[in-house]
């Protein structure tokens, strides 16, 4: 059971990672990031059921999700502002700062 959940979590994490590194659309990258966070939250929640001090793990999951939500608000705002600025919301349209 534990191995299975860790496998799912790991798979989600690496899918998210692949999206973050490989995809060019900002929204897709953003989704990949959220996938990574959810994978970690899944693993945390699972470990909380096993550990002696379980409550700590559940508290962690709740707080992590709250923080992730706050982060999502900021991220989506930024993506929207890129969209409103008339540029395609893609990674490659933001390359003025370099060198």
């Amino acid at each position: 059971m534990s191995a299975l959940i860790w496998a799912v979590s790991g798979l989600l994490f690496f899918l998210g990672l692949a999206a973050v590194v490989l995809r060019r659309q900002l929204l897709a990258v953003f989704l990949g990031m959220e996938l990574m966070v959810v994978a970690a939250a899944l693993a945390l929640g699972h470990e909380a059921t096993r550990a002696a001090a379980g409550a700590e793990g559940f508290v962690a999951v709740l707080l992590v999700l709250a923080v992730a939500a706050a982060e999502a608000v900021v991220g989506l705002t930024l993506v929207l502002r890129v969209h409103w600025s008339g540029r395609p919301a893609e990674a490659d349209s933001l390359r003025e700062l370099r060198g």
Binding site: L17, V20, V21, L22, R24, L26, V29, A91, D92, L94, R95, E96, L97, R98, G99
Partner: peptide, 14 residues
């Protein structure tokens, strides 16, 4: 190396 691309930056983080 600093190409300015977000993808490259993320790639380096990973």
């Amino acid at each position: 190396l600093a190409t300015g691309s977000i993808s490259d930056s993320l790639w380096w983080v990973m």
